[in-house]
Design a binder for these strands. Structure first.
Lengths: 117, 117
DNA sequence: CAGGATCCCCTCTGATACTG
DNA sequence: CAGTATCAGAGGGGATCCTG
């Protein structure tokens, strides 16, 4: 059987650790819908994310090669983010999860509310 | 555009909050492969999870209705866990992520190692 | 405008010990 | 066997202030 037990050796863990980030998934979804975006556009679209966490999330996604960061050497600074090919390849997976979530949330919420111990 | 901004109202967040749990995904994968399992069987299969966290994970999955918990009133106690229909419906999504992760991990690790700021 | 740096809280998590 | 209870440490995450 496959070994899922530690993060470094397990590809699933590696990917899930990104998914598990509170914001990275949303960043991918938003960039998937809107295409190229600037920092503050992302900030507005995602809503209640702090600037710090948005920055951290963007760095992780950039490090993994899921998004590309393009800096324009102008004043005031201009930085644009967009999905890479790898990011675009990953996007459908998130959409499937999103679709499943919408389709089954009501059931899950009902289950959760009935669950008492 | 959809509102992803807060956890209670957002189905995607609700589902991702489960995926993001360090162990719940592994529990689903293992139960998907092995079928019905007892607590200690799960514990051995998953490896480095603590008993406490395994219990917490199982409760969350049970509350959401992704797994079923069957207690046998015997001594010593016997408890069996298995995926519900909802859980089985969810399983392919995790497999897709797992497959994608295996296919792309090398690229991601390479990207990550090259990324310096 | 796009973030880096700090401070701090608070939850998640693990270790240990105990129980029906 | 299958948990529960408790405690302590680490780290995620937000608020605020500052800079090229």
């Amino acid at each position: 059987m496959k070994d899922f037990s530690n993060t470094e050796n397990c590809p699933v863990r590696n990917v899930l650790d990104r998914l598990s980030d509170k914001w990275t998934t949303l960043v991918i979804l938003v960039l998937g819908e809107q295409g190229k975006m600037r920092f503050n556009e992302l900030h507005k679209n995602i809503g209640d994310v702090s600037e710090k966490m948005l920055t951290v999330s963007l760095r992780k996604l950039e490090a993994d090669g899921l998004i590309a960061r393009q800096v324009f050497p102008v004043i005031p600074p201009r930085v644009e983010y967009q999905l890479t090919d790898l990011g675009k390849d990953f996007l459908p997976l998130i959409h499937r999860i999103s679709d499943w979530a919408h389709a089954n949330m009501q059931q899950i919420l009902t289950n959760r509310s009935r669950f008492k111990r």
